[in-house]
Design a protein around this nucleic acid. Structure first.
Length: 646
RNA sequence: GCCGAUGUAGCUCAGCUGGUAGAGCAGCUGAUUUGUAAUCAGCUGGUCGGCGGUUCGAAUCCGUCCAUCGGCUCCA
């Protein structure tokens, strides 16, 4: 007998070799039907595998992320099986589960496939799933494994097996399909009740663009048709929040082929929004001891040779700008830091001057690959809310902390709750990859970890992900359809101070090298606005709404009163406009609602006589009449509350 | 850059197997003077993404380029 500890900490005795499935059945038939896989001492394994020693065990169902992963992983196999039956002779790459579903990379060789073929494959998958095909786990020697797949002519699997050690190779068999796989898998294909293939795309074998491109098919499956339906509705809803769609509808920005791809044009309302964000950050930075600087959009090629960007990115940049002088070249600036370094070096610096916090909303230009451009999140010209802090090695920690505070302040003012903080450190086994002294690296990494710890926020530490010039902290946020984007970033840099031979005079009257910290709390204004749009669905907090209120006169007779109200609002710095169109109130309200203007102020005879406005709040409906000055103070209070005094 | 899909009026879309373009909204003009999500009528507006080809004839078929979308790769 063995002791099994269940999640409620109860201990039960079972015969040695009991499977997860049997264990579930001993608790209830219903649980047995729903169990997808099982976690034994923290490791997910097949529910059909025996448990041979004392262990703490969690039965995983659709309600557990690991359970979902098991279902999706098995679904990838199911899809591969269906495809192998429908398209004999195809070769398989890898087919993992992902956050939302699964994919399989497949070499279709001379057969062609498009999304038109999805229904056929989905049907086949459901057909096979209904057969309740059992997943069999089979341990193989390397020789056997290689034999099987070379016999099948699947060079991708052969390559994968060659990278594996003998003794850790397992196959899974289900129905007509056998695959190299670590598992775990479902007991059988029965729980896969609803199938949807979502997308087809090219994907390089092992992510290497010099190797063959396979066809990747993305899909998702569910244990109930209803859940698939809900998921599809959710996807539709997410599409409505797409910043590209909202940006067009709310007249925030546009693109023009004539201007060029990836070069956004900010419309008046979008520009207003950006200015508000910038002003907010400038206020905060001023309070925190930053100084503003301004630099031109181009720089001599020598600047980027000094910074090293030319050597690394010169070839993949916009072509240089030439002048009438032979040999003279300028580059559109891809970064603000080299310019800022020159400002630092424009006069001798004392340790008493440090830290110097130099901020600029600097527009930079990068030649991103055309396939990578995406709305406002990936563009070729964008404005960073950039700043560079020049400080002594001992000041790194405090400065890092100060920056993190700014980022948190911003996230709070915009109610960003769903973000991930990633700390990227160097690979300790590969120290020669990095520039800067061992001692400084240790100091900086230590400082970052301490600041993170003291902040009490959840962070992910990823060794080996640091830039060659220093460790960093990134703030990642998801967009409407779950894609992750990096917003804010804080990076320590030992490289540029060296390359620009920056110095300060220390208390010892000797020359020292400052440390540089790059930081951008929003990241880029473009990407930040994109993510903000998707998070708010275009329903901005009052302080950020491009138009905060719109006055809606019932008829032409009340235009004079409407303008009077508008004046009062404008005098109180409330951004408002009047809808003077010859339309009925219902129409004006509808249009204002669609533009997501926070407050609609209806004025007619009653209001004109009484000095009031009838307040309607976007998304809430009629709030009834208010004196104009009462509405103003109401709005002002709301803004103060949103900003929490910032 | 690569794989796949898409590209019709400012916007959203229709246009069957090739017979030379249509709706709603927006815009303009007029009527109406309006009370909490669309007042009515008339009008304007498109070398059907560009260029080439097949054909008596191309929005429709083929090629190519451009752009957009979904991924891959990349991201100072």
């Amino acid at each position: 007998m063995i002791n099994i500890i269940l999640p409620d900490n109860s201990v039960r005795q079972y015969p040695k070799g009991i499977t997860g499935l049997e264990l579930a059945r001993s608790i209830s038939e219903g649980l047995a039907r729903n169990v997808l896989s099982v976690m034994v001492d923290g490791e997910v394994q097949d529910a059909s595998l025996p448990i041979t020693k004392d262990a703490s065990v969690r039965l995983l169902t659709w309600n557990d992320p690991e359970g979902k992963a098991t279902l999706w992983h098995s679904s990838a196999h199911l899809m591969a099986e269906a495809i192998e039956l429908l398209y004999p002779g195809v070769k398989f790459g890898i087919g993992p589960d992902i956050e939302q579903g699964f994919y399989y990379d497949i070499d279709f060789r001379d057969q062609s496939i498009s999304s038109d073929d999805f229904p056929k494959i989905e049907q086949k998958m459901l057909e096979l799933a209904r057969e309740k095909q059992t997943f069999h786990r089979i341990e193989k020697t390397k020789k056997e494994a290689l034999g099987y797949f070379s016999g099948k002519g699947d060079e991708y699997k052969v390559e994968l097996i060659n990278d594996l050690e003998d003794g850790e190779i397992t196959f899974y068999e289900s129905g007509y399909f056998t695959d190299l796989c670590r598992g775990p898998h479902l007991p059988d294909t029965g729980p896969i009740k609803a199938v949807k293939l979502l997308a087809i795309a090219g994907a390089y074998w092992r992510g290497d663009e010099t190797r063959k491109q396979l066809t990747r098919i993305y899909g998702i499956t569910f244990p109930k048709q209803k859940e698939l339906d809900e998921y599809l509705v959710m996807l539709e809803e997410a599409k409505k929040r797409d910043h590209r769609k909202l940006g067009k509808e709310l007249e925030l920005f546009t693109f023009s082929q004539r201007v060029g791809q990836g070069l956004p044009l900010w419309l008046p309302r979008g520009a207003q929004l950006r200015e508000l964000l910038e002003a907010f950050l400038k206020r905060t930075q001023k309070r925190m001891g930053y100084v503003q600087v301004i630099c031109p959009h181009i720089g001599n090629v020598e600047l980027y040779k000094t910074s090293g960007h030319y050597q690394k990115y010169g070839e993949s940049s916009f072509r240089p700008i030439t002048t009438p002088i032979p040999g003279e070249e300028f580059f559109l600036k891809p970064m603000n830091c080299p310019h800022h370094c020159e400002i630092y070096s424009s006069k001798p610096r004392s340790y008493k001057d440090l830290p110097i916090r130099m901020a600029e909303f600097g527009t930079v230009y990068r030649y991103e690959q055309s396939g990578e451009l995406h709305g406002l999140t990936r563009v070729r010209g964008f404005t960073q809310d950039d700043a560079h802090i020049f400080c002594t090695p001992n000041q790194v920690k405090d400065e890092f902390k100060g920056v993190m505070e700014i980022v948190m302040l911003i996230f709070k003012a915009l109610s960003f709750k769903d973000f991930v903080i990633q700390i990227s450190l160097r690979d300790k086994n590969n120290k020669e990859k990095y520039i800067g002294s061992d001692e400084n690296w240790d100091k900086a990494e230590q400082a970052i970890l301490e600041v993170a710890e003291e902040s009490g926020l959840d962070t992910i530490v990823v060794p080996g992900e640091a830039a060659f010039y220093g460790p960093k902290m990134d703030f990642m946020v998801k967009d409407a359809i779950g894609r992750k984007w990096q917003l804010g970033t804080i990076q320590v840099d030992y490289n540029l101070p060296d390359r620009f031979e920056m110095e300060y005079i220390g208390a010892d009257n000797q020359k020292h090298r400052p440390v540089m910290i790059h930081r951008a709390p929003f990241g880029s204004m473009e990407r930040f606005v994109a993510v903000l749009l998707e998070h708010t669905g275009g329903n901005f907090p009052l302080w950020l709404a491009p138009d905060q209120a719109i006055v809606l006169p019932i008829s032409e007779k009340y235009h004079d009163y409407a303008k009077k109200v508008l004046n009062l609002l404008n005098n109180s710095e409330i951004r408002a406009l009047v809808d003077e169109r010859n339309e009925k109130a219902g129409k004006k309200i509808r249009d204002a609602e669609l533009m997501k203007i926070p407050y609609m102020l209806v004025v007619g005879e009653r209001e004109a006589n009484e000095g009031t406005v009838s307040v309607r709040k976007h998304g809430h409906g009629d709030l009834g009449p208010k004196k104009v000055e009462d509405f103003i103070s109401h709005a002002k209070n709301e803004i103060t509350e949103e900003l929490g005094g910032l």
